[in-house]
Design a protein around this nucleic acid. Structure first.
Lengths: 95, 95
DNA sequence: CAAAGTGTAACTTATAACGTTACAGGTTAC
DNA sequence: GTAACCTGTAACGTTATAAGTTACACTTTG
């Protein structure tokens, strides 16, 4: 019930992890073991954070993989909830 | 840190929502607005619960979409965490 | 200016969710 | 036992997305 247009996780990654440490995208991508492009896509909200990427972020930044993946879930769910009214679903109860 | 081989969400869906209400897969699929095949894939763990599916389940069973998607995330993360040691990621700190 | 590094866009590939159709096995009802 | 229904699954196509490879534009530095 907290629909506040959550920022995409890439934004959080950039502002809370990369910028504070003064790191470049190139060195972060290398540390994560992914390409610059893949990281760029995440930072700009064109890609989401996959479960494996959540573990990579966890390893690189010492955070929990769960928190990264949950942020992604909340973001995806916010997008899906916007279409709630368009879904033709019938309420179910005991047969 | 709670790695207990979580059940896939389809199992929970079957045991907590479908069986207690005495519903058939056919009628649940129709109510959700999806095909029997799609529901069958979820129940047997061959497909995950997408964000939109979480909203559909929420509408049909009166639960929260968040809880469904979180269950899926935990399940996906459990699978990803098993490969944590194989990932070549370097720890990052200030430049 | 030239060279190196950085960010990003195109293009390609792989995987996954979902639908359509069809088939096989199992219940239940008449 | 035959008909009707439920369930699972397989083959196929569509669409979406994560990720890599390549290439281009914009710095910054020598």
């Amino acid at each position: 019930m907290k629909m506040h247009n959550p920022p995409h996780p890439g934004e959080i990654l950039r502002e809370l992890c990369i910028e504070p440490l003064g790191l470049s995208i190139t060195e972060v991508a290398e540390a994560l073991g992914i390409t610059r492009k893949t990281l760029s896509s995440i930072l700009n909200g064109r890609s989401g954070i996959s479960p494996e990427m959540a573990v990579r972020l966890s390893l690189a930044f010492g955070t929990s993989s769960e928190s990264w993946l949950n942020q992604q879930s909340q973001y995806d769910l916010w997008a899906a909830e916007k279409k709630r009214k368009e879904l033709k679903v019938k309420k179910l109860s005991a047969a």
